[in-house]
């Protein structure tokens, strides 16, 4: 059990660091592409956590199938968000999220 805890705490530390990197990127940036990159980093941290949990509980197949679903959703999010960013850039000539103020009701 101590070995399990050791593995989980080591991985957990780095997963939290990865999550913090993604959250920091989302909080600080004003560029839409950087915001998408931040979301990608957050999703990667979650992916790693699910695989770790699957490995530790012996349910590797379930974890893998969940991760495949996550990756598919991740690609759709990235493609759609990049399309929206491109569309916004063509309308406002900027990738700055502040340029979307005109959408305010």
């Amino acid at each position: 059990m101590n070995g399990n805890w050791q593995l989980f705490s080591t991985f957990g530390f780095f997963i939290v660091l990865l999550f913090v990197c993604g959250a920091y990127c989302l909080v600080v940036t004003r560029s839409m592409i950087r915001a998408i990159i931040g979301i990608e980093l957050l999703i990667k941290a979650v992916t790693l956590l699910i695989i770790l949990a699957g490995n530790m509980t012996g349910q590797v197949a379930l974890a893998q199938s969940l991760v495949i679903t996550i990756i598919i959703v991740e690609v759709v999010i990235a493609a759609t968000a990049a399309g929206i960013a491109l569309s916004v850039f063509r309308h406002t000539d900027s990738l700055d999220v502040r340029s979307l103020k005109n959408l305010k009701g």
Binding site: I33, I36, I37, E40, K44, T47, I51, L52, G54, N55, V60, A63, Q64, V67, I68, I71, I72, E74, V75, A78, A79, A82, A85, L86, F89, L95
Partner: peptide, 29 residues
């Protein structure tokens, strides 16, 4: 961590396809 199928997906889709999407978006802006 004994998950080869998920690793293949991660490498081909996340490291490949998503990078291509980002690079093409950056080149268009």
């Amino acid at each position: 961590l004994n998950s080869p199928l998920a690793a293949v997906f991660e490498l081909s889709v996340c490291a490949g396809l998503i990078t291509a999407i980002f690079v093409s978006t950056i080149s268009l802006t």
